[in-house]
């Protein structure tokens, strides 16, 4: 069952079309990735979902019903351009956003406290935002996004501006929220995190959705029949009938790492059987293209 259905949405600005008939479905409880180069239209789509702006054509359904202004109460949004009221205290800031999202004063405050403790900001509870480091301010921003336990969380570049330790913590928190039932939509350039946590993605380029589907099948679809072979011997001899060697390098153990492309019609099984008679095979694995490569390949192809 889809939580969000975006159907043929078009958004035009003065001189350009930001979204051109974009459709996508986000299933309930999923972690959904919205990828794309800068200026592709991701933020526009996210703002439409948040009802900050309206689409010119098409429709957006939430739980099968057209989106209404009241629905934003069940959404949490972390924009790419982060911002907080600099003069407000950490706890007041979170409480304010929580109450804007319809929480009672008491609920907002106690939820804020719980999150502050959880992310290790306890001693900053009553400090003003301007006294915080950038990383801490980002955490406060994250808390303001999730404090009202929304069923849909929208993160625009959530990991930018965090150090690696905090990125891990944030990822953990996001996945925990997801396991508690929240649907998560996030846009990012960080492809490693896409492979790690997204189930499905949409790649938007130049206002169009150019690639859609679940991460596993997309990677399968883009694979080049490449394998990484590690053997104990220092050299792998060429064999055009079975494979072509793309690269060959000596490894630290004195053996050799090779990347090969199997010839058409040749199976893994045949290759392994052939190699097994001549070499000691230490490793044999299929190379799936990373989302990073797929991203670049797709976008470059689109631009040609």
């Amino acid at each position: 069952m889809s939580l969000i259905e975006v159907k043929d949405v078009v958004k035009r600005y003065d001189r350009h079309t930001a979204l051109d008939h974009v459709s996508l479905n986000v299933g309930e409880g999923e972690v959904y990735g919205l990828l794309g180069p800068n200026g592709a239209g991701k933020t526009t789509l996210i703002r439409i979902l948040n009802q900050i702006i309206n689409q010119d054509e098409g429709e957006v359904l939430l739980d099968g019903r057209p989106l209404t202004p009241a629905d934003v109460m069940h959404m949490g949004y972390l924009p790419e351009e982060r911002g907080l009221y600099k003069k407000m205290k950490v706890i007041d800031q979170i409480e304010f956003i929580g109450r804007l999202k319809g929480m009672s004063k008491r609920d907002a405050r106690s939820a804020a406290r719980a999150w502050i403790d959880k992310l290790g900001l306890s001693e900053w509870t009553n400090k003003k935002i301007e006294a915080l480091s950038k990383g801490m301010a980002q955490k406060v921003q994250f808390i303001s996004t999730v404090v009202h336990r929304p069923k849909l969380l929208i993160f625009d570049e959530p990991f930018s501006g965090f150090d690696p330790v905090n990125v891990e913590q944030l990822k953990r928190e996001i996945l925990e929220l997801n396991s508690e039932g929240a649907t998560i939509l996030f846009s990012t350039h960080n492809m490693a995190s896409v492979e790690e946590i997204c189930k499905e993605i949409t790649l938007i380029d130049r206002s169009h959705a150019v690639l859609q589907g679940d991460v596993y099948s997309i990677r399968q679809r883009f694979k080049k029949n490449l394998f990484r072979i590690t053997i104990a011997e220092p050299v792998l001899a060429p064999n055009d009938a079975l494979y072509t060697i793309n690269s060959l390098s000596l490894n630290m153990a004195g053996g050799c790492d090779a990347v090969v492309a199997l010839a058409p019609g040749v199976t893994m099984r045949d290759t392994i059987a052939f190699l097994n008679e001549r070499y000691s095979i230490l490793g044999f694995e299929e190379i799936l293209p990373s989302m990073h490569e797929i991203f670049i390949e797709t976008v470059t192809k689109e631009h040609e």
């Binding site: 900050i52 982060r82 911002g83 804007l100």
Partner: peptide
């Protein structure tokens, strides 16, 4: 300038 406005308008009109 604070960039808070996007968060606020995603919560109120």
């Amino acid at each position: 300038t604070n960039r808070i406005v996007e968060v606020i308008v995603s919560s109120c009109r």
